[in-house]
C-alpha cells in the first residue's frame, strides 16, 4: 500500500479532531459543552482547508523574484469567512443558552427535556 501515514498527517489531525468534536456534541448533556464540541468540530474543518493550500517549500504569494513556489492563499481567505460564520453560530448558541437558563433554570439537556414534557 502506498499510503504514507506521515504524509497524510494533516488529515489524521482533521479526522481525530472531527470525531472528538462530534463525540462531545452527541454524548455531553450540558448545552455549553455541546457548543464547545461544535467548535472543535468546525476547527477540524478549518485545518482541512488550510492544510490543503500548503505546498512544501511554498511561501506566501508575494512576488520577490527569487522564490517561484507559492502556497495557495485562497483557502485561508475562505476560512476567515468560515471562522466568522463559526463565531456567529457560537454567539447565537450561547445567547440561546443564556435565555434557556433564565427560562428553565438549568443548562442540562435532560432536565430541560423533562420540564418540557
Amino acid at each position: 500500500m502506498g499510503i504514507n501515514i506521515l504524509g497524510a498527517f494533516n488529515y489524521w489531525v482533521v479526522v481525530v479532531l472531527m470525531m472528538i468534536g462530534l463525540y462531545i456534541v452527541i454524548t455531553h448533556n450540558n448545552l455549553v459543552k455541546k457548543l464547545i464540541g461544535i467548535n472543535i468540530f468546525q476547527t477540524s474543518i478549518f485545518i482541512l482547508f488550510i492544510s490543503m493550500g500548503k505546498i512544501s517549500g511554498g511561501t506566501a504569494p508575494i512576488i520577490t523574484g527569487t522564490n517561484t513556489v507559492y502556497s495557495s492563499p485562497l483557502p485561508h481567505v475562505l476560512i476567515l469567512t468560515a471562522i466568522v460564520v463559526g463565531i456567529s453560530t457560537t454567539a447565537l448558541g450561547l445567547a440561546i443558552v443564556i435565555r434557556l437558563y433564565h427560562a428553565f433554570g438549568t443548562v442540562e439537556d435532560d432536565e430541560i427535556q423533562q420540564e418540557i414534557e
Binding site: L22, V25, L31, K34, I38, F41, Q42, I45, L48, F49, M52, P75, L78, A82, V85, T89, L92, G93, I96, V97, R99, L100, A103, F104, I112, Q113, I116
Partner: peptide
C-alpha cells in the same frame, strides 16, 4: 428556545458537512 438550540446544533453539523464537501471538491 430549546427547539431553536436543537436546530442550531443539528443545522451547524449539517452546514459543516456541506463545507467539508465543498473543501474536498476544491481540493
Amino acid at each position: 428556545l430549546y427547539a431553536a438550540f436543537k436546530y442550531l446544533i443539528f443545522g451547524t453539523v449539517g452546514a459543516s458537512f456541506i463545507l467539508i464537501s465543498v473543501g474536498l471538491l476544491y481540493d
